[in-house]
Amino acid sequence: MSKNPVVVVDSFTKVYGDGTRIGPITLHVGEGEVYGLVGPNGSGKTTTLRAILGLLKPSGGKVSVYGLNPYSHPEKVNQKIGYSPEIPNYPPFFTAEKLLRVTCNMKKIIGKDADNEVRRILDLTGLVNHADRKIGNFSKGMVQRLSIGQALVGDPPLLILDEPMLGVDPVGRAHIRDVLLQLRKQGKTIIFSSHELYEVQRLSDRVAMVYMGKTVFEDMVMNILNNSPETKVVAELVSEPDGKLAKALEEISGVLEVAFEANKVVISVDSSLDPREKIAEKIVNLGYGLREFRISQPSLEEVFINRVKESVSG
């Protein structure tokens, strides 16, 4: 990894009192990255995030945040972290503003600075008009936004958001997405978890996929989408494709499978061999005529499901 590592989780394992086993989980989060932790419910995302926050003691492996062990130095590590929990739990009789003020206080932001900070966050999260309302009367989406808001108090460089979209309606989601994209522009390092791959694909630079307590894989989203076996070449032809073309294409090294859909040829390729040029050449040379030639990327979800299948069978 080229960037400065902010969070390193190396073969982290956790064995809970009831025998539930999580891990080994390995993550590398670089400075300024938006890092998505994905996996189905119960796969160990929250456990991993809580270890990063120093809220639980790893049973094995190493967790380091800015070079520090968070379990031994929770106060130093949390100085640099803003955290929004999976299930935000704030005193229901607090108003939004009161929660933000208390949080300012905890971070030693006082007086005028606190006023400004509270205003900045109410603005950013779109809660200005609800500042004086009690949290108990908030909708799920508003609580999530407030929860992200309190994480932003004091402008910490690292944000840890556990399922920030959980239970939020589409409008609320769009708002949260905007907030996250804005933060990303500001260069914040953001680690967030989600069981919805679509959200992760839209937001993150890098993802780790965990399944049944283990990291299945970790990579840049771009690499995953460009270089997975699910990546297909789609060629639209002038004349209809036939068996002869199929045979010719299958001879090219790197071509795994050829299928036809009306005027289109859909070709699975081994992207490490990148046979795109040869495919195009052959189609043209054989006189089928090329109208369109493109790469069809899989969704993160397809990739994930296939990897899980592989890791279970292999």
């Binding site: 809220l55 929770p74 106060e75 949390n78 100085q79 929990p85 739990n89 704030y90 949080t103 905890m106």
Partner: peptide, 15 residues
């Protein structure tokens, strides 16, 4: 029980 422990323990506060 209230779930507020998380909030306090993720402040820059010594245990």
């Amino acid at each position: 029980e209230l779930g507020t422990a998380d909030y306090w323990m993720t402040r820059p506060l010594k245990r």
